[in-house]
Nucleic acid binder design. Structure first.
Lengths: 196, 196
DNA sequence: TCATTAACCAAACGATCGCTTGCTTTATAT
DNA sequence: ATATAAAGCAAGCGATCGTTTGGTTAATGA
């Protein structure tokens, strides 16, 4: 029964892994994964290109780390928003607002989740798909609580809403409509279950 | 009054410009603009990389040509679909179906319009934006015919629908729901004007 | 204090990128 | 039949790509 774990020291205070992650998030979100070079990222945090590989084994893995953090933040924002709200339609509306706020006013991490397509990650594409599915399951739960006629209506509502919300970043301009009013307008267009 | 036009010969029959355009459309649609190299395109049509530049001055211009053709095809499909239909909501529904069919079952040209972001084109980004706006204006016209309460409701409906439709390609699987039924389900979720 | 090691730097590797230049083939109009 | 130009080919340009390798520095735990 020999101990296989080696004694490891804690990360240092001047560790710039998180700064690198931030730079990757903003660049991937603003210009796309393939349009961002590792040298740009290194320059953004003031390190040399090769130094990235001390923190991440590849550019793909860096993307996965950013994507993971992005999903985590959206999930957290949505869960925090619905907490304490009872009415199912109200829960859905505040969830949509939180989703949209994370996408628009939130950091770059959330934007990466919507902008970067899983296949861009190459080998790690499945990881991104799994993360995205995990979040959409959270959304499915909120819709399952609604009294909709059948399962296909629930599915359609989920895809309609998520699609419309995720597309907002293509036309959103800060300072005009807020995420809150956008969601109110979208939800106002919906027939809330009283249709056949 | 000298004739400034030079006598030009017609294109040859073995011209492979259209084949090159097709290859660019499928590659840009399936793998993205930056993930596609000019060598891949050349290999797909059986020509050498440098030969591309006989037909197009740059990779960016090639994208603009594909994008332009994509917008043209979607516009044509939508205009053909609404032709002869009178009821405004019916016109909108068949337009959405045509839009979705062009995106999913249609060629790769239409998919490029939704997948590739204008900023990917570099200098020619404004060209792509102008093309996209032109199409959305067509859609705005269809929605203007509806009796919606105000201008913000019209705008919200346009953005909701186009967003949801354009997002479909992220989850669509051929052989399951058809574009027609997807649109019916989406439209079935909407309150058709009778709300405040 | 001092050995350890986290966190880089410095320099380059081969591969691939978009693109250019000069030459060749061949369909076409006359 | 022949001149002309369309539509490439052949070869390589300089730049940039993601990544590796070996050495350096300084924060940290004992």
């Amino acid at each position: 029964m020999a101990r296989t774990t080696v004694k490891e020291r804690a990360p240092r205070q001047d560790n710039r892994r998180s700064a690198l992650l931030d730079a990757a998030a903003t660049h991937f979100a603003d210009r796309g994964f393939h349009a961002t070079s590792t040298r740009e990222l290194a320059a953004a945090v003031g390190m040399l290109p090769g130094s990235i590989y001390y923190h991440f084994p590849s550019k793909n893995d860096l993307l996965v780390a950013v994507y993971d953090e992005g999903v985590r933040r959206i999930e957290a924002a949505v869960e925090r928003a619905v907490d304490g709200v009872d009415d199912p339609w109200q829960r859905l509306e505040v969830a949509c607002t939180a989703h949209l706020e994370a996408l628009l006013d939130g950091g770059a991490y959330a934007r990466v989740v919507v902008r970067v397509q899983p296949e861009d990650a190459g080998d790690a594409a499945d990881d991104l798909i799994a993360l995205r599915d995990r979040y959409e399951a959270l959304f499915s739960g909120l819709i399952a609580a609604l009294d909709l006629p059948d399962v296909s209506a629930r599915r359609a509502l989920r895809l309609l809403l998520l699609g419309a919300l995720n597309w907002v970043q293509h036309w959103y301009r800060p300072g005009r409509d807020t995420p809150r009013t956008i969601v109110r307008r979208f939800m106002g267009l919906l027939a809330r279950g009283e249709t056949a």
